[in-house]
Design a protein around this nucleic acid. Structure first.
Length: 223
DNA sequence: AATCACATCAACCGCGATCAC
DNA sequence: GGTGATCGCGGTTGATGTGAT
């Protein structure tokens, strides 16, 4: 994919579920973009900070005298990474980053690819089915996010972890108990999961998010 | 309209495990 | 077996959106 053929790339991205892509004219002919959640309406993108890491930590890379870019990825960087992986495959992320000419750490490249650019990444709200599965698997395995993610095709461990921390733990807090406590697990097992299962039956193609109004009922019932 | 608090999620960090030599 | 490089996981951070006041 050539940068000059940006529209094709955008089309390719837009074919992926629920991916919001907004471009704005940036400085120096460089398109900056916001590729975060669909809830984010602004295309404004924070400029990447360019930082010099401590020389001691960079002694293996001193000759390269690289400035390591951090923060949100630009569309140009994404193009570079996608192109490189299309041609050479992934893995060996540190050398990949260098070979591709990206001023990013290997870790950063790996994360961007696995959590965002990989073609089979599924985005958007978790379905009731997926939420049920997460609750079930977490009750069995705890915070084994990667293991849990293996059972949700297209979902990343990062996404599941965020879901758990922002949604599930919030509900545990409302119950005044720990998300790992027996009390909360019982609440999930006997109240939340049956409700989700009910909603799952009613669900056709729409995704379902447990609403706070739903929660208040079982919080009252449980306490 | 301004301000604040909270929610969300992409990205980063530290560290143990694994790999390659 | 030792060592450095790399990978992958789980925890955390910080920018930004959103809703309440």
């Amino acid at each position: 994919i050539q940068l000059s053929n940006l529209s094709s790339f955008i089309n390719w991205l837009s074919l992926r579920p629920s991916l919001s892509l907004e471009l704005e004219k940036g400085e120096e002919n460089m398109a900056s973009w916001s590729s975060s959640s669909t809830q984010r309406s602004s295309g404004a993108t924070m400029p990447c900070s360019v930082v010099k890491l401590d020389d001691d930590l960079l002694r293996h890379e001193e000759e390269a005298a690289e400035e390591i870019r951090r923060g949100p990825w630009t569309v140009e960087e994404d193009l570079t990474l996608v192109n490189y992986i299309a041609d050479h495959g992934d893995g060996r992320w540190n050398s990949l980053a260098r070979a591709a000419g990206l001023k990013r750490t290997g870790k950063s490249c790996r994360l961007r690819w696995l959590n965002y650019l990989r073609p089979d990444v599924k985005r958007g709200n978790f379905t009731a089915d997926e939420q049920l599965l997460i609750l079930d698997l977490h009750s069995r395995w705890g915070n084994r996010w990667s293991k849990i993610a293996q059972h949700l095709p297209g979902r990343t461990d990062n996404e599941i972890k965020n879901y758990w921390r922002t949604r599930v733990q919030k509900h545990a807090k409302q119950l005044n108990c720990d998300a790992n406590s027996t009390k909360f697990k019982d609440a999930m097992k006997y109240l939340w999961m049956p409700r989700l299962a009910d909603h799952h039956l009613q669900q056709s193609n729409q995704t379902f998010q447990l609403q706070d109004s739903d929660l208040s009922g079982w919080v009252q019932g449980f306490s």
